[in-house]
């Protein structure tokens, strides 16, 4: 029996309505990455993580469980699980299964991004425990009622802190805030830019020339919806990195399969395997610019190629 679409969507919507995130994590888990960076709280320009990097270790731990449930008779108990989740935050316990090393790894990517922005002399603050998930998954699944309420909540938060510019770290949060929010929240006109756009515009100079070959995986959302294609290439070119584009790249990039992980794990893995194969034909040192692409392709490559977040290479090249 496939995983029950209705019950899983119900859990996502309940969590967003009740706990302000599809997969609520602790404040400590969401903000740990910023420890010691001394970022000011709030400000006109903020770095907005949208919790996606922090959620990946949780999603990764949950995905293993969900894969085992797919085609199992236990799927019939998801309805019961939804009712229990209304009272007790089940995803919080799932989060406890996330590996400490994986959490450290993803926190490190966020630290690198913040340090790159500092290096580029960008002044920004952070909302710490007040920051909220963007609502991207709920929007994609067509749960518009829950999404609209949440979008208003995020906008109210920006208003409360007098935010004018938002720097995002992943394609899904960038797209949701920049292109979707204006359709759902009247008068929403904040300046939203991905850190890759901000860095490319900043004129940041590399401190180390890196002659590595890098097979670059474009994110569907960045490339096709947000026109973020040239900026990462420009940053890599400046540092001497030899970019190896797979056959399907830029606006014609191929999906990593990640969006299906919660409802159709085996289909998600099939697509990820196809994409990993294409990328390995371009090179065995692969970089992604989305944490969902990263976790999907790492699993698919299963050690046969090195898959890392683009921020790792940028941090080395730009001396952070």
């Amino acid at each position: 029996m496939p995983l029950p679409t209705k019950d899983i969507l119900g859990i996502l919507a309940d969590n967003l309505n009740k706990r302000k995130s599809v997969l609520p994590i602790s404040t400590a888990g969401a903000t740990r990455w910023a420890k010691g960076l001394e970022l000011p709280k709030g400000g006109k320009t903020i770095l907005y993580t949208g919790h996606l990097y922090q959620l990946i270790p949780v999603i990764d731990a949950m995905a293993g469980q969900m894969s085992r449930l797919e085609d199992s008779p236990l799927t019939k108990y998801f309805g019961l699980g939804r009712n229990v989740n209304k009272l007790i935050n089940m995803t919080f316990f799932m989060g406890m299964m996330a590996s400490k090393n994986t959490r450290k790894d993803y926190d490190h990517m966020l630290r690198n991004i913040a340090l790159l922005l500092k290096k580029a002399n960008v002044e920004f603050g952070y909302l710490y425990g007040e920051e909220l998930y963007s609502g991207a998954l709920v929007y994609d699944e067509g749960l518009d009622g829950a999404f609209a309420k949440h979008a208003q909540r995020v906008c109210d938060l920006f208003k409360k802190h007098g935010v004018e510019k938002v720097i995002t770290v992943d394609p899904h949060t960038t797209h949701t805030l920049r292109s979707v929010f204006p359709e759902y929240v009247k008068g929403f006109d904040l300046d939203v830019k991905s850190y890759l756009e901000v860095l490319a515009d900043s004129g940041i100079k590399p401190t180390t020339l890196i002659s590595d070959e890098l097979a670059l995986h474009d994110s569907c959302v960045y490339a096709r919806h947000e026109n973020v294609v040239e900026q990462p290439r420009e940053l890599l070119n400046r540092a001497g990195v030899k970019i190896k584009n797979p056959t399907l790249c830029g606006k014609n990039t191929h999906c990593c399969g990640g969006p299906l992980e919660s409802l159709f794990p085996s289909e998600s893995h099939r697509i990820a395997n196809n994409r990993a194969k294409q990328l390995k034909e371009a090179g065995d040192n692969i970089a992604t610019m989305c944490p969902i692409c990263l976790v999907s392709l790492r699993k698919a490559a299963n050690g046969s190629a090195q898959v890392s977040d683009l921020s790792d290479t940028l941090a080395r090249a730009y001396g952070v």
Partner: peptide, 9 residues
């Protein structure tokens, strides 16, 4: 319908 990746290809 729910297994569309919404990848936009």
């Amino acid at each position: 319908i729910y297994s569309c990746l919404l990848c936009g290809m």
